[in-house]
Amino acid sequence: MTVFAIILSAILTDNFVLSKFMGCCPFLGVSQNIGSSIGMGTAVTFVMLCSTAITYPISVLLLIPRDLQYLQTMAFILIIALFVQIVEMALKKLVPPLYKALGVYLPLITTNCAVLGVTILNVDQFANSVSFAVGYGKALLYAGCAGLGFTLALILFAGVRSRVAEADLPKMVQGIPSTLVAASIVSLSFLAFSGMS
């Protein structure tokens, strides 16, 4: 994949939430208002970037040469869980304002499948690149763009949701059902981008 194709696919054509269905829980849960969408999106992007920075070398340099790929799931989830914990502590100590903004979202990220998903997809897609550096660079780019795409979807959807919340709906579709149908329409609009790939 070229750099441009990576950016385009991660943000638009293969958007993590709207076409890969990863990270649906925060997408449906934390998109009531734009503020929390931005907070959650930034926290996820940050953790995606940092955990890719750690898991990609571990997988490519350590696990694959030794035929230990089957340990990948276990190693990755442990690294992400550990890493989220460290980030939370570090932010609390070093950058209190950022912690205040992102802190509440961090514990949720361990079980966000978009984060584990992006680390696994990165190894699947880029592990056989020409050199380690090229693959590493592309993996980081993909992780960053996937996070951006996730944030974009969350922010767009927050706008849609605030309108849906004001609508007078029958009781049976209030809450999750109407949210899912709205998500379907937003997802439909993203489907149009797939023509570009």
Partner: peptide
């Protein structure tokens, strides 16, 4: 009634 229900 779905109003105060969410997946979380």
């Amino acid at each position: 009634e779905g109003k105060d229900l969410n997946g979380c």
